[in-house]
Design a binder for these strands. Structure first.
Lengths: 259, 259
DNA sequence: TAGTGGTCTAGACCACCGG
DNA sequence: CGGTGGTCTAGACCACTAA
């Protein structure tokens, strides 16, 4: 039984409730980090059934305004400063200055960056990686998998792959911290002068395991970035796959207009 | 009452059903365009309540495997060939050859492209646009809003803004079709030689109105691309906002490794 | 008019979290 | 342990579509 409303075909009740809560978040009545009313409280307050209150909360979660934790409640998301990924980050002068790109960028955004190395060592190249490195699938390559944090929150997972014959002579690449300027600086130290990078950008929804490792709500959007590093000899000396929480990043690119 | 299952804490029933259907789609048992079983049929077939069948369908919709049409049913999405957006598309030689970037790219992907002009004319610049054009908010600018189709399916909505003093002397910019090489060629015809473009890429979920205009399921991911065109004089002579269905595009960029 | 999905009710039980 | 969200049931009525 629907209660008599002014407009019979108005917006669904669950959207009205979501809208109401969204407004309170926007106005700061519910500040970031604050717990929003529980589902049973929403039932009482708006006089709706469990399923309806539930759907209102789901709507807010889908739009990224809140995150919910089983057994604890739903909380207003803090809007962290976005990290800008600039194409400038690959300039040789930056590498020479010993800057680590992710560090400088995160600090510029006013966040405390940190890294956790998940794995460094030999791996059999998956098909897509092998293709980009121009080696046979299953060939042994060096993999470096890292998880990046911004203010303690995981935001980005990156895996670099290097051909074994390139990596084997560069001991720093097997260390957790490859030293100032990162692995690109080490490659150039050992004669692999870099000429160009190519990047591809895709956006999609996170899979279940991805959502877990980046601690996202399932169904949150992610940016999937792939990068190939070309040496002056024209060889791909490194490829990198990066998965980012989409709401944390803006990617910047500069494109010359020339011929 | 849960029926006795082998594993008590197994995956939720609605995910099992979704997985089952996803497998049939993957294997081609349910080919693109095919109608999937209705919710009531799923209830019978799997012996679940309406809400559970419903949630299974919602899961498939969220992962982009199907699209649902009220009153008709849910249908397996055809995976159209992705459109690659390459940074090469802005080369002057392409403009001189009279190529329109979107046309060449879509055709290369094996799709029939088309365009609908939604609006061409004066507009008061919104705050963000005005900022990028270095004019005061509310200043009159020329807006060109287009909707792009691939095989008749809307995939991309783009709006260009040009400062009035730049646009007013170029009559082609007020026409629906600005001629070979697009508006960038016309700008260069009239002395605004282009030096560089800068692009920013964001990914997020579509809002309700955006989902409507691109005919996406609500909650589908979109790529929001902004581009500034710089003349050799260092002035921003055009800015462009583009909204793309994320599953339709891969963006390509090349980045020099130099200083 | 029959069939479809969209919204909603009013309960139930389970799993996780904190004190 | 009580409170929270996660899953599920078994119905109801509405809105849209096609025959």
């Amino acid at each position: 039984m629907r209660s008599g409303s002014v407009r019979e075909t108005s917006a669904p009740r669950y959207l009205q409730i979501a809208e109401d809560l969204a407004e309170q978040i926007q106005k700061g009545v519910l500040p970031p980090g604050e717990k929003i009313p529980s589902e049973s409280e929403l039932m009482d307050r708006y006089g709706v059934a469990p399923g309806t209150a539930r759907k209102a909360v789901a709507e807010l979660r889908a739009t990224g305004l809140i995150e919910t934790h089983h057994g604890k409640g739903s909380f207003v998301k803090s809007r962290p400063p976005v990290n800008r990924k600039s194409s400038d980050r690959f300039r040789r002068s930056h590498r020479k200055a010993g800057k680590a790109a992710y560090l400088a960028e995160a600090e510029q955004a006013g966040a405390k960056p940190s890294v956790r190395v998940l794995y460094v060592g030999p791996t059999e190249a998956p098909a897509d990686i092998a293709d980009r490195l121009s080696v046979a699938p299953g060939t042994q390559v060096l993999a470096r998998r890292r998880l990046y944090f911004s203010d303690g929150v995981p935001t980005e997972e990156a895996t670099s792959y290097l051909p074994w014959d390139v990596a084997k002579d560069i001991p720093e690449l097997f260390a957790e911290n490859p030293g100032g300027g990162g692995i690109y600086a080490r490659l150039e130290d050992h004669g692999h002068i870099l000429a160009e990078f190519s990047e591809t950008v895709r956006a999609r929804l996170a899979t279940k395991p991805e959502a877990v490792s980046l601690s996202l709500s399932p169904g949150a959007p992610v940016i999937h970035l792939t990068r190939n590093a070309y040496s002056e000899a024209g060889r791909v000396v490194e490829v990198c796959d990066t998965l980012m929480a989409a709401d944390q990043f803006i990617l910047d690119y500069r494109i010359p207009a020339g011929d």
